[in-house]
Amino acid sequence: MLLVPEPWWPSAFLALVLFVDAVASVRPPRFIRDCLAGVRLPREWWWTLVVVKLLAAAGLMAGLAIPGVGLAANIGVVAYFLSAAAAHIRARFLKQEFWLNCLGMLALSVAVLIMSYAAR
């Protein structure tokens, strides 16, 4: 396993998706508000998710040039969405937001990890 993603574009795509998600979360649309309220995340903590997503996107982009950084960021993104899935299950908030957003992002982040680091 190499410590720089090959191919590079899945990591860049995941970084873009996380960046767009973070920007959207600054003034969250209804489906994001419903999701965060559904898992009972206190509103005063919502800003932390924006920071985490921006840092993850930056880590994925930095990892295109700095060995190990992208791998660590990608693993962190997988852990983030595993935690989000656990929060959904714990809160029994298993509506469309869970299946499309949470598990969709988990699947994307795992696919990027496999495509960029493990499938050689």
Rank of each mutant, 00 (worst) to 15 (best):
M1A: 09
L2Y: 06
L3G: 01
V4W: 07
P5W: 15
E6C: 12
E6S: 14
P7F: 15
S11V: 15
A12H: 04
F13Q: 05
L14C: 11
L14N: 13
A15D: 14
A15K: 01
V17M: 00
F19R: 07
A22N: 03
A22R: 00
V23Q: 11
A24C: 09
P28I: 04
P28G: 04
R30Q: 14
D34T: 09
D34V: 06
G38K: 08
V39D: 15
L41G: 08
W45A: 12
V50G: 03
V50Y: 07
V52S: 14
L55R: 02
A57V: 03
A57W: 01
A58W: 01
M61W: 13
L64A: 05
A65T: 10
P67W: 00
G68C: 06
G68H: 10
G68Q: 06
V69I: 14
V69H: 08
V69T: 12
L71F: 07
A73N: 12
L82V: 09
L82Q: 05
S83Q: 10
A86Y: 11
A87C: 08
I89K: 05
L94R: 06
K95T: 10
K95L: 10
Q96K: 15
L100V: 15
N101A: 09
C102G: 07
G104D: 08
G104Y: 02
M105F: 12
L108P: 00
S109W: 08
V110T: 05
V112K: 11
V112C: 04
M115Y: 05
S116L: 05
Y117T: 00
R120S: 07
